[in-house]
Simulated scan of single mutants.
Amino acid sequence: MTSLGKRLVVEGAGTAWLVFVGCGSIVLNGAAPQPAYGVLEVALAFGLALATATYALERLSGAHFNPIVTVGFAVANRFPIRDLVPYIAAQILGAVAGTALLAYVASGRPGFDLAASEFGANGFGDHSPSDYQLHSALAIELVMSFVLVMANLLMSRRAVSRSVAPLVKGTCLALIYLVALPVTNGAVNPARSTGPALFVGDWALDQLWLFWAAPMAGGIAAGALHALLWGKPRASHGGTVGKHGEAA
């Protein structure tokens, strides 16, 4: 079994990759005079980033890269509670590191102003890409977070092939972003939301609560439903972490 320290490094690195690639597809292309990327391309960037990181790192940490996935697995009794806070902390630090690298790269463009840029941050109302209000953002983040966590739980079942699961998870995230990008700029991941918000500040920090509260509620609901429908896994062997980061 991989040690907790190594798993935390992997979770941080995978989250950093997801944020850098996904938000980079918004920030670096969106900064150009004629943006090269639209909703489809950004959604694919997030989905492919998750799929590649999962293929590469799943055996080491379970490849959560998202606090709501970790919480959902814990609620479903498929992840040890003692590792919950360290995993979430590593994911947040990874997201901040990925955002910092993105800010450094973006600063190389003449005229780039981080303070004036939304920098891939999530928002609603005046800060929604298509001016969607709070109730729309709340609904989309809650429902899509539920779907994402449930997909991760179902793909973690032992009967599912390791060669298929990462592709399904990445495809699920891409489909979610196709719908969520016009509403909130695509979140369903509190770590992904926190990184850009810390750099943008102001309104992004004021609205960050929604991108923790709604996704967490969706993730908890998915974990509870999974536990209800499929029950607890077979007796734990000392609460060790298995191949998907769940309690084995």
Rank of each mutant, 00 (worst) to 15 (best):
L8H: 07
L8A: 01
A13E: 08
T15Y: 00
V19L: 06
G22A: 00
Y37L: 15
L40A: 07
V42L: 09
L48F: 13
L50T: 07
E58K: 15
F65K: 06
F65Q: 04
F65P: 06
N66K: 07
P67K: 02
T70H: 04
F73N: 13
A74F: 12
R78A: 08
I81K: 15
L84H: 08
I88C: 13
I92S: 07
G94F: 03
T99P: 10
L101C: 13
L101R: 04
V105T: 11
G108D: 04
A115E: 12
A115R: 07
A116V: 00
S117K: 00
G123E: 00
P129G: 03
L134K: 00
A137C: 03
A137F: 02
A137Q: 07
A139Y: 06
E141D: 09
E141C: 10
L142A: 12
M155V: 09
S156Y: 07
A159W: 12
R162W: 11
V164G: 00
P166A: 05
V168Q: 02
L173D: 03
A174G: 07
A180K: 04
L181P: 00
T184G: 00
G186W: 03
A187H: 09
V188S: 08
N189Y: 06
P190W: 00
S193G: 03
G195S: 05
P196K: 02
V200C: 03
W203R: 00
A204L: 05
A204V: 00
L205S: 09
L205C: 09
D206A: 15
A213F: 08
G223C: 03
G223P: 07
A224Y: 08
A227N: 14
A227E: 14
S236P: 09
H237T: 13
T240W: 14
A248F: 14
